[in-house]
């Protein structure tokens, strides 16, 4: 529980003076999304010691956390008060920091219903490439004072600067949660998802894998009970499947490698071995790194760079992303491997 803000700021300023680039690192759990391996010459700026929950106002549904705080710690603290993070960030063997979760912007299985990471971000304090400490957003739900720099940080993999603390919206843990498993083929499951999305059913996750449609229902007891009757299938109160899906510990992910694509939920099914997540909006396929089909992105080295530098192939947008990076970090101090042409991925 230490506040290392000053030390981190000083480290950035020193690096800046020395003309040295830095790699921001939480626990390094998502390193696999940025680069295959760490260069021994990298100057690593670790937030791991910058930990602690600074302000938790449970009545306001807001928590402000230092970026190096382990996700697991935050989860436990919130859980004790019957609250949780809406975006269900993945957690790997207890690893993963709050700063890293926000920077990576990877939401869990509830994404289409509970929103993405940025939807929960209310404010940040960060160090930009000038070595300045800046505060954007705040601790209230509604705030349109100035450009929304805080939400921009989510999914930016740290290219704009070091997050020192973030204020996040939290939600009450649902009163009841129930999982249903239906034996359906892929096509039928997909149609089911499309149909259900137009109905007011308290679904908070829907995923198809290996001939089974998994559905999670959450909310007030009566609503969930009724919906569960409607959905049918085999039912359980256990959320093991969802945690495994979230943290990618299902056997599906432990294979030669995976690639994903983000699509409109009703988009046609392509690949025969696709795992359907997010009610159809995210599809996974098992492929080795050199055989990623067109339209998919490899979930591994290059993933973050594809987003931060190439904007998923959208050239006009990529140009503005580049200018944005310049606006925050003109000397490309931070995570240059994700944005700069001259740094190999």
């Amino acid at each position: 529980m230490t506040d290392r803000s000053d030390a981190l700021t000083e480290a950035v300023q020193n690096a800046r003076t020395a003309g040295q680039r830095v790699l921001i690192m939480g626990s390094g759990s998502k390193r696999f999304l940025t680069r295959a391996d760490t260069d021994p010459g990298d100057r690593i700026l670790s937030t791991e010691e910058h930990t602690g929950i600074e302000d938790y106002r449970k009545d306001e549904l807001v928590v402000t956390v230092r970026s190096g705080t382990p996700l697991r710690t935050l989860r436990q603290v919130l859980g004790r008060e019957g609250q949780m993070l809406a975006f269900e960030p993945p957690e790997f063997q207890g690893l993963g920091t709050v700063g890293g979760a926000v920077a990576a912007g990877l939401p869990g299985p509830g994404r289409p219903w509970r929103g993405s990471v940025r939807d929960s971000v209310l404010g940040v304090e960060m160090i930009n490439g000038y070595g300045e400490r800046l505060v954007f957003g705040g601790q209230v739900m509604k705030n349109v004072a100035g450009f929304d720099v805080s939400r921009l940080q989510s999914g930016a993999f740290g290219i704009f600067g070091v997050l020192l603390r973030v204020s996040l919206k939290v939600i009450p843990v649902p009163q009841t949660e129930r999982s249903c498993v239906l034996a359906l083929d892929r096509e039928a499951a997909h149609q089911w998802m499309i149909r259900m999305s137009a109905l007011p059913v308290p679904i908070t996750a829907a995923c198809w894998l290996d001939g089974q449609l998994h559905v999670r229902l959450s909310g007030a007891e009566p609503a969930v009970v009724r919906a569960a009757r409607h959905v049918g299938g085999e039912q359980s109160a256990d959320d093991g499947f969802w945690t495994a899906l979230r943290d990618q510990t299902l056997p599906f992910f432990r294979s030669i490698g995976v690639a994903c694509r983000y699509v409109p939920p009703a988009a046609a099914l392509l690949d025969t071995d696709e795992l359907i997540d997010w009610n159809g909006a995210r599809r996974w396929t098992q492929r080795s790194p050199d055989q990623v089909p067109a339209g998919y992105r490899r979930f591994g080295p290059g993933y973050a760079r594809d987003r931060c530098r190439d904007a998923g192939g959208n050239r006009a947008v990529a140009e503005y992303q580049h200018r944005l990076k310049q606006a925050f970090d003109p000397d490309s101090l931070f995570n240059a491997e994700l944005t700069d042409a001259d740094v190999a991925a």
Partner: peptide
């Protein structure tokens, strides 16, 4: 600039929120 669409997540930085 075309940012996002009927799917959930744009495959670029979050200019939508910006």
């Amino acid at each position: 600039l075309e940012i996002g669409g009927p799917g959930n997540d744009p495959e670029c930085l979050d200019l939508l929120a910006l």
